[in-house]
Amino acid sequence: MTHTLISRWYLKPGREAEARAALSSLAEAVLAEEPGTLAYLVHEPCGASLPAAPAGEVTFYEVYADEAAFSAHVSGPVFTGFLKRHGALFEQNFPPNSGPFMTVSTLKRAAGFVRPGSPDGAG
């Protein structure tokens, strides 16, 4: 059974461009090195959001082959290395230096589809 989640992180003001470049590199490394990661999409708000999205918010939509693949991601060298190199680009948990502040929601699909050949990588 797949393991799906949404996570939200918050870019530090003044570090947005650097963080976006780092996130792009992270997504490329996950694609190249983590075959159990089926989807790894990083989004920023655009247009109208209800309620309005906080400044600097980025949303990750992630799908893993199973919980073991998710565990391999969060404990593996790609993600842990990213945190060591780029964690300071994001708002931090308290106490300081304990890692980026994030919210995480694990999801169970209730309905819907991904159209084969869609721009989000299916098919």
Rank of each mutant, 00 (worst) to 15 (best):
M1E: 14
M1D: 13
T2N: 12
T2A: 13
T2C: 08
H3W: 13
H3A: 14
T4W: 00
L5A: 02
L5P: 08
I6Q: 09
I6P: 00
I6Y: 10
S7T: 12
R8P: 00
Y10I: 00
L11N: 11
K12L: 14
K12F: 09
P13N: 11
G14A: 07
G14H: 09
E16V: 05
E16I: 03
A17E: 07
A19Q: 07
R20C: 03
A21W: 03
A22R: 05
S25T: 11
L26W: 05
L26M: 06
L26N: 04
E28A: 15
V30W: 01
L31F: 13
L31M: 10
L31W: 12
L31K: 14
A32T: 06
A32L: 06
E33R: 14
E34Y: 07
P35K: 05
P35F: 08
G36D: 10
T37R: 03
Y40W: 02
L41H: 13
L41E: 15
P45M: 03
P45G: 08
C46A: 15
C46L: 12
G47H: 08
G47S: 06
A48M: 04
S49H: 15
P51E: 12
A52E: 15
A52V: 11
P54F: 09
A55T: 11
A55H: 11
A55Q: 11
A55Y: 09
V58C: 02
V58M: 04
T59M: 10
F60D: 01
Y61E: 10
E62H: 04
E62L: 02
V63M: 03
A65V: 04
A65C: 04
A65K: 09
D66T: 04
E67F: 08
A68K: 11
A69H: 11
F70N: 12
F70L: 14
S71N: 15
S71C: 07
A72P: 08
A72W: 11
H73W: 13
H73T: 11
V74M: 07
V74C: 06
V74E: 13
S75P: 00
G76I: 05
T80A: 07
F82L: 05
F82S: 05
L83V: 14
K84L: 14
R85K: 15
H86M: 01
H86S: 06
H86Y: 08
G87N: 04
F90W: 13
Q92Y: 00
P95Q: 01
P95D: 04
P95W: 02
P96M: 03
S98G: 09
S98C: 08
G99K: 10
G99D: 13
F101W: 10
F101P: 00
M102I: 02
M102T: 12
T103N: 06
T103F: 03
V104S: 02
V104C: 00
L107R: 01
L107N: 07
L107C: 06
K108G: 11
R109V: 14
A110L: 14
A110E: 13
A111P: 01
G112A: 03
G112V: 03
V114R: 14
R115G: 09
P116Q: 12
G117I: 01
G117K: 02
G117Y: 07
P119M: 03
G121M: 00
G121E: 02
A122V: 00
A122I: 05
